[in-house]
Amino acid sequence: MRLLVAIRIELRKLAAQRATYVGFGALALLVGLFVWGTWRAGPPLKAWSVPEDFIVAGKLVTGVLIPYVLLEMRVALAVFIPLLIATTVGGSVAGERKSGTLRTLMTRPVSRGVVLSAKLVVAWAYAGALTVFMGVFALILGYAVFGGGDLLALELDAPGLNIIAEQQAWLRLALGYGLAAVAMMAVASLALFLSVLCDNPLTAAGLTVAVLLVCAVLKQIPYFEWLWPYLLTEHITVHTRAFASSVAWADIGRSGVYLAGYILIPAGLAAAIFQRRDILC
């Protein structure tokens, strides 16, 4: 019961902050710019490394293509949304510690476990909401501008394109965005763990981004190939498996296990540290 109240309070606080809406506004702007760019210049075939002599007939740009390409572009899921999560969730504990409100909060008769659990749930909800918002908004805008039609998706692990029927595309998009939301929840867990460790929200946000960057850099160095399957960034892109000619459930299951670890381990560590750490600010 206390946990539900604490979650409601955390949600109220999140809803009362302008920064929350700035994040959603920035995502809406990104989607809007992408739709405008596609409307002006056509589908981003070059970015997909499709040869110039490749001939595609029919309606290429459809309402379902917009949310799909936004997922594929990586910039949204690897940079943009993690940055928004890092700044908001990174301040969730460190920001409250810095402003002194954590002290006020913890002088109330409520356990630290309840307060941190509420913050975790809201951090996960925020990460999921950002991802789902991007997908839903892209879908609405995509349909409004380009109308319905099949989805032209990249084939996995081999050059080529995969045409997915419109109804099937909706299911694939739901699965893809669901997986992306889970991946973003892992980023939120990491950000909250660092927020518990740091006294400054900017440091927590910066460290979250730094961890993701280090993972991305390690992925580029062959010496660390043995490490690649364990990197968070390796599994952030699990949504691509939803758009293969047949859904790659085995890959999704494997990444799901790693993502569960990335969600639960930082959360557990954050709880253990938060229980013991003195609140001095």
Binding site: R2, V5, A6, R8, I9, R12, K13, A16, Q17, R18, S99, G100, T101, R103, T104, L105, T107, R108, P109, V110
Partner: peptide, 30 residues
């Protein structure tokens, strides 16, 4: 424990009204 406390300078959520802050903190304690 029904304990009310002020530790050093009281800090509140600046973006909420005084009443909303009180409501929120009271809700947290039941």
């Amino acid at each position: 424990g029904v304990v009310g406390a002020i530790v050093e300078q009281p800090a509140f959520y600046r973006y909420l009204s005084g009443r909303r802050n009180l409501q929120l903190l009271a809700d947290l304690s039941g």
